[in-house]
Design a protein around this nucleic acid. Structure first.
Length: 488
RNA sequence: CGAGGUGUAGCUCAGUUUGGUAGAGUACACGUCUGGGGGGCGUGUGGUCGCUGGUUCAAGUCCAGUCACCUCGACCA
């Protein structure tokens, strides 16, 4: 079984690539670093997107759309910001092609050079804040709570499908507020939205925390993050929410008059999650037989397989069951392909991650039962055909819970407190996961640890316990533990 | 950008050392026997051997250049 997927034990990276390809999630395109998201992968992303969009709307946000191209001069207005992105920007320099005088197809028309070059957005803070300047004049215009769903481009050296591609899909929220308190509250609110989404929909437990200065978003005063742990013990930053202070307001001169007719710069936030969540979803739950999708995000929650092949009696039973399930809002598909054999279908639906599979054969019908197989545990049971809809409805809930609990148990087991440098290195190498250790708060120590071990500070957990201790590297005094890990 | 590796059928790869008609498995199509976990047998489709140039009577094979991809570094959501 699963003969086409490399096992996680044998080669974790290859396993990941195999899942992406064999589960029809995405392909490498001919364009370096860019992927083609295939229908099954996109369907999962759409489910994520729909749910997140609902959660954004429920917290008072509206959607808008800003240009793909950003004038080069905008990007340089905020010093930290341009430093953070300058090295990975795609630049549009010309606006016209012409026939090659030598007859070799088309070439760039040198006379069509742009007066000011355009940057393909790596993120939209600059163009958005340039626009907000015109939109905001009074405290009555605030807060401004806008999100956009878009593609962005970051010219990455090394790419991996979903986890890091040159072009990716995401949403970016950009908000403006009258007070620092309100902006910080917004930053934290959206972090909570992300955490709730990850845990309740992706069934992926996350740790909420704040980034150190080194790991902070370029241009932010504070970056909050949700960090998840993958099955190979590496951490994955899955979403970030930034408190931007007044940095962009000052860079783009965005001010408002308050109730006392005083002019102030606005306070800002931005927050985003991307198709990287697809990578997180894959690595959080899937196994050597293929993809595992939590029921709440599965494009098809239940598949019915006729055994050994479709027939009048089996088709009728499948129709009846499908109607019952659909009445309960469950998505279901009947795999009545006559050409493929049941064994093949079993393997294929496991590969694609369908949470529940129902097997209907003449033997089952004679007994008045249905074979119910769950993807998360790969176990099967016989269920009375009259109880099937209620059973499946509950089973989907159980699977969702089980996936979360399983991942949560794994996460909890892989947060290790260490108190010495030797122990730090030992745990990092042998066990992986998050290492909870004291750190003296300096960038120098953080960078030294990264250099020595490749582990970085993933975050300082929110509501962190305050305790006296000594930095695991330098022995200098520390007031709290932070979480280290190797990361994607 | 540094180090190493690989480009041959949709996919995985042999063939390159020693130049001489382009191969296998898998996938795909059709037929057939099957049928409760990727089934068997048979027939068939499918290739500018990454690209460009050179050496040669003759290049997948030798030489030079070039491009792409993979692994590991630096960078990063």
């Amino acid at each position: 079984m699963a003969k086409e997927i490399t096992s996680r034990e044998e080669n974790y990276s290859q396993w990941y690539n195999d899942i992406v390809r064999k589960a029809n999630l995405a392909d490498h395109s001919d364009v370096r670093g860019c992927m083609v998201i295939k229908p099954h992968g996109f369907a999962i992303w759409e489910n994520m997107k729909n749910q997140l969009d609902k959660m954004f709307k429920d917290t008072g946000h509206v959607n808008a759309y800003f240009p793909l191209f950003i004038p080069k001069s905008y990007l340089s207005k905020e010093a930290d910001h341009v430093d953070g992105f300058a090295k990975e920007c795609a630049v549009v320099t010309h606006h016209r092609l012409m026939n090659d005088p030598d007859g070799n197809g088309v070439v760039v028309d040198p006379s069509a050079k742009l007066e000011e070059e355009l940057i393909v957005r790596p993120t939209s803070e600059t163009i958005i804040w340039n626009t907000y300047r015109d939109w905001i004049s009074s405290y009555r215009d605030l807060p401004l709570l806008i999100n956009q769903w878009a593609n962005v481009v970051r010219w990455e050296m090394r790419t991996r499908l979903f986890l890091r591609t040159a072009e990716f899909l995401w949403q970016e929220g950009h908000t403006a507020h009258a007070s620092v308190e309100e902006a910080v509250e917004e930053t934290r609110r959206m972090l909570d939205v992300y955490a709730t989404f990850a845990e309740e929909y992706m069934a992926m437990p996350v740790i909420k925390g704040v980034k150190t200065a080194n790991e902070r978003f370029a241009g932010a005063d504070d970056t909050y993050t949700i960090e998840a742990l993958m099955q190979d013990g590496k951490a994955l930053q899955s979403g970030t929410s930034h408190f931007l202070g007044q940095n962009f307001a000052k860079a783009f001169d965005v001010t408002f008059l308050d109730e006392n007719n005083q002019s102030n710069h606005v306070w800002a936030t931005s927050w985003g999650v991307s198709t990287r969540l697809m990578g997180a979803l894959i690595m959080a739950h899937s196994d050597d037989a293929g993809l595992v999708i939590p029921p709440r995000l599965a494009p098809t929650q239940v598949v019915i397989v006729p055994i050994p092949k479709p027939g009048d009696e089996i088709d009728a039973a499948a129709d009846r069951i499908m109607n019952e399930l659909r009445e309960k809002g469950i998505t279901v598909k009947y795999d009545n392909d006559k050409k493929r054999r049941p064994g093949f279908k079993f393997a294929e639906h496991e590969m694609h991650g369908t949470p529940v599979r129902l097997g209907i054969g003449k033997r089952d019908l004679a007994n008045g039962t249905i074979e119910v197989a769950r993807r998360d545990t790969k176990t099967k049971e016989s269920v009375n055909i009259d109880d099937i809809a209620a059973h499946v409805e509950q089973l989907l809930v159980d699977i969702q819970d089980n996936l979360f609990n399983r991942a949560k148990a794994y996460l909890d087991e892989h947060i290790t407190e260490v108190n010495s440098w030797d122990e730090f290195k030992e745990v990092l190498e042998s066990k992986g996961g998050f290492i909870s250790a004291h750190w003296d708060g300096t960038s120098e120590s953080e960078l030294k640890i990264k250099e020595l071990t490749k582990a970085t500070i993933r975050c300082i957990p929110l509501d962190n316990k305050q305790e006296e201790g000594k930095c695991v590297l330098t022995g200098n005094p520390s007031k709290e533990r932070v979480l280290f890990a190797k990361a994607y």
